[in-house]
Design a protein around this nucleic acid. Structure first.
Lengths: 188, 188
DNA sequence: ACTGTCGATGTCAGTTGCTGTCATCAGCGT
DNA sequence: ACGCTGATGACAGCAACTGACATCGACAGT
């Protein structure tokens, strides 16, 4: 047994999400989050770079998953198809936590600073995917374009998945968005 | 003659850009910006919501220009082609300020918070373009996809325009990116 | 010319996010 | 037993941002 309760980081994430839901992101102070987690304010900043980051702990994991999924994709696949396939695989995993995802997304949508953070996480993700494509021999500009297009497809499909009633299938929505983009760029 | 020197807002923008270039964004305090502009710190926050916003005064203008350019586009054009054409028109105007754009972009690239702000401005822009497309009768999802794809095309072309040696033509780079995306989504 | 309103700015105090620094203390290896 | 390490606490301090109130030229109406 340690000197302190275990999983300080997890407790902070939990406390923060609860408080952000209860009274909103801006109305919550870091001191309150720390107090609910049974820690000092200073400790919060040892685990998270800032007050927003506590909501994005999973972003790094998702990015690693996508990059390795992309690395495993068939060499025969088009860059865009490979990226979309990686997102579909990730979508299958996300699927299991729809309610959590909805809560989190509601908090993020309600605050501009959190939306900014989300956007930069997605941009970092697209950049990592572009790098992975380049390692597969894809041209510089084609890699950027395919990664950004894939990211846009995912964002739009994710939003529909969150907002739609019932139990929509995220990988299926991703595939639909991909097909629609292909139709849009095919001319009329 | 007013009681104060005219164009306080412009002086603040100028002073801020200079200081961000001289010593970097984080190393500059709002008090220093205000002092260089001959104003009080409080006045800075009356003109700009925060320390970052002072670099993005033109974003609103750009967005309005794009939306009205899109509204003027031919009804025969594909959604993506209409969006790309709007960006090309904007690119023609941006072209005249390449050096200013490069300086500004260097400052933004050097700081994560500024990149976040830039991303949300671009997201807002894409969202406005999607709305404009919907008013033209484009489907919800097609409008989002076309606007996001157009935005990605512009971002990538803009980056190349900034970094390339010589005097690259921005509208031409936009067109090239559009064509490349079309090729990528056309299958092999 | 007088007067009252208005708009842009100054001044000041206060909250909060975030950082640097040093102290504390259980566990662990030697 | 001893010292090292890693996670935490305690405290001081800076800078971003906000609210409240004061100031004073411009300007309109009379």
């Amino acid at each position: 047994m340690g000197r302190w309760e275990p999983n300080a980081r997890g407790r902070l994430e939990q406390a923060a999400l609860e408080l952000y839901i209860e009274r909103g992101f801006e109305q919550t102070t870091v001191a309150e989050i720390a107090k609910r987690a049974g820690l000092a304010e200073r400790t919060f900043f040892r685990h998270f770079a800032d007050k927003r980051e506590v909501l994005f702990g999973g972003a790094g994991t998702l990015q690693e998953f996508l990059v390795s999924a992309l690395a495993d994709a068939s060499d025969a696949a088009t860059p865009i198809d490979a990226v979309a396939a990686a997102f579909e695989a990730a979508g299958t995993l996300l699927q299991e936590r729809r309610e959590t995802a909805r809560q989190r997304q509601a908090v993020i949508a309600a605050n501009a600073e959190l939306r900014e953070r989300e956007l930069i996480k997605l941009a970092s993700l697209a950049s990592a995917l572009a790098d992975a494509l380049r390692q597969r021999g894809v041209t510089d500009s084609a890699a950027s374009l395919a990664a950004e297009a894939g990211s846009a497809i995912f964002r739009i499909a994710f939003e529909r998945w969150i907002n739609e009633a019932g139990q929509p299938d995220l990988p299926h929505l991703i595939r639909e968005s991909l097909d629609e983009l292909k139709a849009l760029t095919a001319g009329k």
